[in-house]
Simulated assay, not measured.
Amino acid sequence: MVYSMTGFGRGKKETDRLTITVEMKSVNHRFCDVTVRMPRQLLIFEDKIKKVVLQYVKRGRVEVFVNVEGEGLTKKKLQVDWQLLSDYYRSLQEANERFSLEDRVTLSQLFSLEGVTEIVEEEAENAEIEKLLIDATHEAALQLKGMREAEGRALINDIKEQLSLITECVVNIQMFAPDVSEQYRERLAKRVHEFLQGTVDEARILTEVAIFAEKADINEELKRIHSHIEQFTAAIGSDAPIGRKLDFLVQELNREVNTIGSKANDSRIALHVVEMKSALEKIKEQVQNIE
Rank of each mutant, 00 (worst) to 15 (best):
A216L: 11
L78T: 10
E130S: 01
A234H: 08
S108K: 05
I44W: 09
G7Q: 11
T15M: 02
I44P: 07
C169D: 03
A235F: 11
V105F: 06
A279S: 13
N67T: 15
T137K: 01
E256H: 05
G261F: 07
N96P: 10
Q197K: 12
E202P: 01
Q79C: 06
A216C: 15
G146T: 13
A189C: 05
S91R: 14
R17A: 04
S112Y: 02
M38Y: 06
T137I: 03
T233D: 08
E221D: 07
K51A: 15
K13V: 02
R185Q: 12
V200P: 02
V274Y: 06
Q288S: 10
V170G: 03
V273D: 11
T117V: 15
T137V: 04
L271H: 07
R10V: 10
I134A: 09
L249A: 05
T259V: 07
T21H: 05
N67A: 15
G261E: 11
D239K: 08
E97R: 11
L54C: 05
G237H: 15
D201T: 00
F65I: 04
S112G: 13
N258P: 12
I20V: 14
V2P: 10
E123F: 00
L188H: 04
E291F: 03
L188I: 09
E46R: 00
P39N: 07
E202H: 06
S164N: 13
G11R: 11
V192Q: 07
F8A: 10
V105W: 03
V57M: 08
R255K: 14
I283M: 15
A189I: 01
V62Y: 03
T35S: 14
E186A: 12
L163R: 01
S26F: 06
E63L: 01
E97L: 09
L110R: 03
L110F: 01
L85D: 08
E71W: 03
Q109Y: 10
E69Q: 05
R10I: 04
I236H: 00
S262D: 11
H193K: 05
A213E: 15
E256L: 02
V273L: 14
A154P: 01
I156W: 02
R224C: 13
E123K: 00
E114K: 08
T21S: 14
I260S: 12
K77I: 08
T259I: 11
N67K: 14
L246A: 14
N289H: 10
S100R: 15
E118T: 06
G146A: 12
E221K: 03
T117A: 08
V66A: 09
K282S: 09
V62W: 06
Q183T: 03
R255H: 13
L280M: 06
F65Y: 08
M175V: 02
E151Y: 06
M276E: 10
V66H: 05
G11K: 09
I159N: 01
Q286Y: 14
I20H: 09
E194F: 09
R30F: 13
T259M: 12
V66P: 02
V287E: 12
V209T: 12
I205V: 14
L144C: 11
E102Y: 08
V120L: 07
V52Q: 02
A279R: 02
R98K: 15
K145C: 04
E125A: 14
E121P: 00
Q197P: 03
K284W: 04
A127F: 14
E102L: 09
R98C: 14
D135W: 10
E214V: 13
